[in-house]
Design a protein around this nucleic acid. Sequence first.
DNA 1: CTGAAAGCGCTAACAG
DNA 2: CTGTTAGCGCTTTCAG
Lengths: 334, 334
Amino acid sequence: MPVTIKDIARESAVNVSTVSRALSGSYGVHAKTRAHVLAVAARLNYRPNRVARGLATGRSHTLGLIVSDIRNPFFAEVARGAEDAARAGGCDLILCNSDLDAEKQMRYVRSLLEMRVDGIMMNSVATLEREHLHQLATCTVPIVLLNRTAPEKLFSTVNADNEAGGVIAAEYLLRLGHRRIAHLSGPRRHGNMTDRARGFARVINGNASAKLTLIRGENTFAGGYELAKELLQQKPEPTAIFAASDLMAFGVLRAMIELGRRVPEDISVLGFDDIELAGVVQPPLSTIRQPKYELGKAAAEILLAHSGDKSKRGIEHRTFGVELVERKSCRTLP
Amino acid sequence: MPVTIKDIARESAVNVSTVSRALSGSYGVHAKTRAHVLAVAARLNYRPNRVARGLATGRSHTLGLIVSDIRNPFFAEVARGAEDAARAGGCDLILCNSDLDAEKQMRYVRSLLEMRVDGIMMNSVATLEREHLHQLATCTVPIVLLNRTAPEKLFSTVNADNEAGGVIAAEYLLRLGHRRIAHLSGPRRHGNMTDRARGFARVINGNASAKLTLIRGENTFAGGYELAKELLQQKPEPTAIFAASDLMAFGVLRAMIELGRRVPEDISVLGFDDIELAGVVQPPLSTIRQPKYELGKAAAEILLAHSGDKSKRGIEHRTFGVELVERKSCRTLP
DNA sequence: CTGAAAGCGCTAACAG
DNA sequence: CTGTTAGCGCTTTCAG
């Protein structure tokens, strides 16, 4: 059995409450007794029991993170940012993979609530129904939604400026001289991608000589691959393709190889996210970078900041800028 | 304030212990009262407090996972496997990123111990000193070491058969007709990679006409890139390169492009791991696949199996086979 | 500054 | 089958 506060109280001939005070570093205990208690604790190799502490204080010092799948490199970055920030704030991080399944997601929320986490970060609530949303709203702990662009009155949100990203992408391609341009977007329910598409379309369509082709598919390597193959059926071919994520862009690159098109000589490809491997594929992928690590970090920090005030659940919204990362997959048209 | 077992006891006019029994589904409670209690609980929207339960039972139903960095796609897969298995066993997963820092790693272990997790999975203890190892050995919860090839009497281990992987790689390259062969390995303290190198070298050196060049560097994209550039300084050039990880192989691929070599026409490249993007790069990377998801899953399952028995901390060792995944980065020599 | 005592919410003997 | 009674280990009034 692990040594408890009681053991060290007995051993150092003081009351448990004194030990508790000495250990929690709070004032109100003589420096001498305190030193003694600490010494005994060290000698006995005492490890506080955070479960007991949690029960007594009501704070568990844990944060929950629900992502669709940690294997998606985008979420891995987000998770890392969240973990670092949580850790810096003295909290541990519980990881949940929802697979974009609303049921599963709600189960995780319940589970986290039962553990009395101090806050929950979750992405991908796009598919949540009213009832679920309502359930979330009645949560006793602060919640921050990641990648949620719709304005939220009920929860804090953290997201990248996706629409601006679409604008940047469009302006870039136009600037390079492209006019026949395609955009490969994700499913409609994917709010972020819809935002990207909106910004992108607005700019392209605002240029009289430019022509936009927009098609949708799955936000995966395979999705990008298939959309690209489908796209190149039609004539005239676009000179540039903007994929809504790097993963999809990778699929496009593969499709181009199989179709015998060279990138960027025959066709330019632009991605979104700037995951680590964007710079690794051939050719290195030009893309719109969003600050993934920072998104996760910000989410955790919001939780940390508000996990104290039970009364006013401070709602906070943070939007991060995105930027163009030029590599080798887009070229200037003569 | 959340509703407690007490509230529902009062509301349904029975004792808390009855409620507890009814809720925990255990026998010894009349079906009728039980149904009633459950109904009241549901009406009150009762959520059990797992912190309290944990304190009372001594089991927290959480598992800890310490990896060097979740952004490494290898660990993301492992983590996913671990999470799924933990979840299936009714446990939550706490994620820790140690960055291969021994100090940090030990802090995490302590932290997890304070939370009274039911078990800990950790990779990368290669750099741990005797003192740390000893500390771990005295832990009150079961520990399983991931990717630890050294035989362990103190802890359970789960790993892929790295040495066999090296053998498979060597035989494959030999079979394709390669004789001037290079191996790019990781740092010496990286036990897995050392095992891969051992198996590989044994086979290559066992072939009289084959010549092996072995160099070491960092297990990263940049590491592979630099080693490859260094390697191609010397003449005659190898006809095949076996990289100790896919990440390193990606670096090799990049270096080859920059040096004007075509893969696999001029030089063959073989990786290890089979991370998701191995099939995405150009050319698709041939590699030795290790079952990452299964590794994580097995680790969690061992913990789950042994977290009951306090007395006999069953030590268990599991080794997973690896296999060759042939894609397009290696060619047959005429 | 320190001790005594009352919980936090739940489980687990032990009686009845 | 159900109620009573102790705690789990720690914090936190409230006295002294």
